Simulated scan of single mutants.
Amino acid sequence: MSEKMIENNKVNVIGEIVSGFTFSHEVFGEGFYMVEVAVNRLSDQADTIPLMVSERLLDVHQDYTGRTIEAIGQFRSYNRHEGIKNRLMLSIFVREVHFMEEFTDYTKTNQIFLDGYICKQPIYRKTPLGREIADILLAVNRPYGKSDYIPCISWGRNARYASGFEVGARVRIWGRVQSREYTKKLSETECEKRVAYEVSISKMECEEA
C-alpha cells in the first residue's frame, strides 16, 4: 500500500476491550473480526469504538475482555445495505495492536489525523444554548480508487470557519474519534437506539479547491 495513502488517515486509540470478537468478513482467506474498545475521555466518560481486526493479528478465539490495548490503524467506512437504504458503517481498521499493563497519560488515548476533501456542503447550526456546531463529511482517499467517508464535527470558531468550506476543498483535520447515542425513528410507532461514530475536531486547515 502506498505510504502516502496511509499517511492521510492515521488513528491511535488506547482503551479497554469490552466485547468478544464477532466475524465480519473474509478476504482472500483472511478473516476479519469486530471487537469493541472503551476509550476514556478526560471528562470520565468513555467512547465505545469498534475495531476491525485480522485473525492474523490477534487470536480472535481468545477472550481479552478487560485488557488494555493500543490499536493503531485507519478510520474506515463502508456502506451496509439495509432493505432499500444504505447505512454508513465506521470502524478502526487495525494495522498494529499492543497490550498494555499500565497506562496513565489519558491525554493520548485517542488521536486521529485525516487529510481529505469536503464532499458535501458543511451544515452549520446553533444548539438551544447557543453553541456553534458544523457537520462535515470528509472523503479520504484509499488505494485502488476507494475512499472512506468520515463524518466530522467542529465547534465554536472552528464551526464558523468550516461553514465557509466549499465542496472539493482539501481539509486536514486533527481530533479524536467519538461515539454518540441517538434515537432513529423507524415508523410512526417504532424507534431504535443506535450509535453514531464521528471525529470531534480540535484543529483544522483548509486548502481551497
Rank of each mutant, 00 (worst) to 15 (best):
F32Y: 15
N141H: 14
E26C: 08
R87I: 14
N79C: 00
L42Q: 14
L114P: 08
E101H: 05
E26L: 03
T48D: 08
T127R: 01
D148A: 14
Y117G: 00
F32G: 12
I136T: 02
V35E: 03
T127W: 12
A71F: 07
I123S: 00
P122Q: 07
I153M: 11
E96F: 08
T104V: 15
S43I: 03
I112F: 05
I136C: 06
P122Y: 09
V94L: 06
D63R: 14
V140A: 08
M34N: 15
W155N: 06
T22R: 15
E26F: 04
M100E: 04
E101G: 06
G83K: 12
P122C: 04
A38P: 06
T65F: 09
S163H: 08
T127Q: 10
Y33T: 13
M89F: 11
L90Y: 09
T48K: 07
I118F: 02
F23N: 01
C152P: 07
K85T: 09
R142S: 05
G83D: 05
N110Q: 01
P143V: 04
E102M: 07
D44W: 10
Y106M: 10
Q74Y: 07
R87S: 07
N40Q: 15
S24V: 14
D63T: 14
S54Y: 02
V140I: 02
G116H: 04
I123N: 05
G83S: 02
M100Q: 11
D148L: 15
G83V: 04
L138P: 02
V60W: 03
E96M: 05
L58C: 01
G29D: 01
V97I: 15
D59M: 02
P128T: 07
T107V: 14
S147K: 14
K108T: 14
K146N: 09
S19A: 03
N158D: 09
D47N: 12
A134H: 07
G130E: 15
I69D: 03
I92R: 00
F103L: 04
T104Q: 12
P50V: 13
Y78M: 07
E101C: 01
N86T: 14
V27T: 15
D148S: 15
Y117T: 15
N141K: 15
G20Y: 01
R125L: 01
C119M: 11
K85Q: 03
K126N: 09
D59V: 08
F21N: 09
G145Q: 11
Y117A: 07
F28C: 12
D44I: 08
R131K: 13
F75L: 15
R80Y: 09
A134T: 06
R157D: 00
L88K: 13
N110S: 00
Q45V: 09
K126D: 08
N158I: 04
I136H: 07
F99V: 09
T65E: 11
